[in-house]
Structure formats: C-alpha cells, structure tokens
C-alpha cells in the first residue's frame, strides 16, 4: 500500500486496528461511490491519515457498520455510514491531489509513459472537474501549492525548508480548514509539520533515482558533499537526515499533545509516535543505499 504516514501495527490495539481499517475502507468506499473505480487508485494511508485527523477533530461521532467490500466480497469490513462530511471532504482532497500529481508526472516522464498518461488524462480531468466544483477552496490551495512548488524547483533551491514549504502549507490548510481559534492554530502547525515530514522522507526515498535520472532533489548536492568524505559518508548523511526528520516530528508532537481530540487519539498517537519512525527506518534500510555505497 502507498503512503508514508501509517500506523505501526504491532503496537496497535485490536480495537484500534479495526477502527483504522474501518476508516481506510470508508475512504475507499466513498471514493468509489462518488468518483468511481478510477479514483480509488488515489487511496493511500496518507489520505486515511487526513480522514482520521479530520474525523477526530470534528465533534460529530462517526457511526460504523459492517458492509461488504466490492474487491473482496467474502470479507465484511466496518465502514462509516454514507454522507459522513469529513470522509467526503478527504475524498475530494484526494481526487484533487491525484489530478495534480498526474499532471506533474506527465511533465517528468518518458515518451511511452507520457502516451499512457494522455490516454487516462481525460477521465481524471472529468473527476477533477466534479471535485473542483464542490470544493473550490481546496482546489485553490492545491493548485497554488503546485505552482509554487514548480517555481521553487525551477530555481533548484538547496534549502530544504524552502523546498518543503509549498506542500507543507497545502497540508496545513487542508487539515485546519473550517476551524477557528486555538484549534485552527494547532491543526495548522500539525499539518504543516506533517506535510514537511512527508516531503523530506519522500525526497530521501527518491534521492538515488533522481540522481540517476537527473531530476531535481534538494538533497543531491548535500549527498555529494557527504560522499566526498569517503567510506562513512552515506551513514553520516542518514544520521543528518534522521536529525532533520526527528526535529520535525518532535515539533509536530508538541502541537498534537495540545490538541483536544474527540476520537481516535490512540491511533493517532501510534501513528505519530511510532508509525513515522517505522517508515523512516524502512526507507533508510533499503538495499539501494547499500548498492550506492558500494558504487562509490
């Protein structure tokens, strides 16, 4: 499954696991219901996290009930009832973000992939139009973030803060939309830092591929610097990145602890305290890093 922000299952209680799966299934179902199977491809743990936070900050109590899954009809899963506002919100966000991601991919990819993208593009364009009309605010937030991101990348900035800013700001707005006062402030901060964390871990994950393809990545020149130090360069680079990520998570936790949440606190605690760390370890322990090390 896709996504960086997910729960660390071994430490999750069974009841929380069921709920977590329930939210995941609800998002999937609502995507299918509103936008059809093509949109269900945008399902990820990151969107589930968005739905979780939105649900847990809202005052209404979500009702779950068992229902069958289209893709796995033998198994019943717990799903949120139809027309849950927060699930619906997350689904619209997912479709809008998927559309812009697709456009972004068209720019970056090779000839054959480009043709494939143009083939599916009209369908997504239709879905996007529907989402756009129901949530013009989100459309504006995501669109301007993508434009800003392109601008920053064209400048080939070396500052991670600058590079991460547009997407962090977008997530900050998505999370805090509709709230006021302290809660808004806390959700903004939480969203910003989670967005920042996702950007950094994604940059780290794509780093070696980007070097091969010559794409932009804020860490390319820094990695070069560490490589010059010789044998221990890669692990020193990872230590440095760990520090950057830790700092982001820590700041995020401070905001999280001050938030007053109605539901799902244990799941969110699991995700933020252990899930993120687990993802980091996974990304850093992949074999490509070893291969890269050998090649030096």
């Amino acid at each position: 499954m896709f996504g960086y922000v997910k729960a660390y299952k071994p430490e999750l209680k069974l009841k929380d696991y069921e709920l977590y799966k329930g939210v995941y299934c609800s998002v999937c179902k609502q995507l299918g219901r509103k936008y059809g199977p093509l949109a269900q491809l945008s399902l990820s743990y990151d969107i589930t996290f968005l739905a979780l936070i939105r649900l847990s900050a809202s005052s209404g109590c979500p009702h779950f009930k068992a229902s069958r899954c289209f893709y796995n009809p033998l198994k019943k899963c717990n799903c949120c009832e139809k027309n849950n506002e927060e699930i619906d919100y997350s689904v619209d966000c997912a479709v809008i973000m998927l559309y812009y991601k697709l456009i972004d991919n068209i720019k970056d990819s090779g000839f054959i992939k480009r043709i494939a993208f143009y083939f599916v593009y009209p369908f997504y364009s239709l879905l996007h139009r529907k989402a756009k009309t129901s949530r013009p605010q989100i459309e504006y937030v995501v669109k301007s973030a993508m434009e800003e991101q392109a601008e920053v990348e064209n400048r080939r900035t070396q500052s991670i803060d600058e590079a991460a800013h547009p997407s962090s700001k977008a997530l900050s707005a998505l999370l805090s939309n509709g709230y006021e006062g302290d809660k808004k402030l806390l959700l903004e901060r939480l969203g910003y830092l989670i967005g920042r964390w996702i950007y950094i871990i994604d940059a780290a994950d794509d780093l070696l591929e980007d070097i091969k393809k010559g794409n932009y990545n804020p860490y390319i020149s820094l990695l070069d610097e560490y490589n010059k130090r010789g044998f221990s360069g890669i692990s020193e680079f990872k230590d440095y990145l760990t520090g950057v990520l830790n700092l982001t998570v820590d700041e995020c936790l401070k905001a999280f602890e001050l938030l007053e949440l109605e539901h799902f606190r244990d799941i969110l605690t699991n995700i933020l305290y252990m899930g993120l760390e687990n993802t980091r370890l996974k990304v850093f322990s992949e074999e490509r890093w070893l291969k890269h090390e050998k090649s030096i």
């Binding site: 820590d250 936790l253 305290y273």
Partner: peptide, 15 residues
C-alpha cells in the same frame, strides 16, 4: 530546544 528535538527528545520523554 531544537537540539533536544533533533535527537527525538520530546518523543522519548512523553512515551
């Protein structure tokens, strides 16, 4: 404050 966070200070003391 920042250096403390870099080593995951808040996370380890609260959990």
């Amino acid at each position: 404050n920042i250096n403390n966070s870099r080593s995951g200070g808040y996370r380890t003391t609260s959990q």
